[in-house]
Amino acid sequence: MEKRECIILKNATLGYKKNQEDVIILKNIDLSFYAGDFIGIVGLNGIGKSTLLKSLCGLLPVLNGEILIDERNVNSLFLKDLAKKIAIVLTEKIGGFNLTAYDVVAAGQMPYTNSFNRLEKENLTIIESAIKICGIETHQYKLLNELSDGLFQKTIIAKALAQQTPIMLLDEPSAFLDYASKHDLFLLLKKLSAEENKCILVSSHDLDLLLKYCSKLLVISDNSIELIDNASAKANKAFLEIGGGFI
């Protein structure tokens, strides 16, 4: 199968704006990600993993250069179309207002509903299957505030699944999961990238999990950002530094 480029960064400088001034986090990046890629993003705290993920889905501005999603500039796409291409899982907490786990997963189908957000039969089927895949059936009608951190994380992942996008970006999705759920999650992501040809980028500090399941690693360090094969990771200086001698 020919590999299709779905994310391209061209000389992109990323960061955020504070009081009209650019705060640069990552500079002059040239990268391409393909459909079917399952890429682990590694780097120390504060190095720019979240910034990269947020920039890829248009939540942060591209300060210089450009990011192309399916050959279209990420900032020129309509939000509604972008929502059908990229789903994101962030680390932020949400809740209150009677929001249940089911409501959050259902929100994943919002790009596909009419302007009154009416859920048709096919929407409901997709929502239910996302809930089932993430194993939160018994908790789906609980309020978000009542969920444990791990179940909350699974709920957000189910939302991203329900969004049915060819690209999924996950920011430290394994942070609050128990040991078995971490492996379940990475197995699931691997399966999605292999069987549904999704491009999946996941940042994590669980280096052993990334080594075990991902196809490639994006290693971000102070002076470089490089995409390496999993097999060559243990020969990579930057990766070993992030591992701190424990890998």
Binding site: I94, A107, P111
Partner: peptide, 16 residues
């Protein structure tokens, strides 16, 4: 409905 999920998630599900 989308705004309940906060700024980032509502943008990501297609609501400005």
């Amino acid at each position: 409905n989308a705004l309940l999920l906060g700024e980032n998630y509502s943008q990501n599900i297609g609501v400005n």
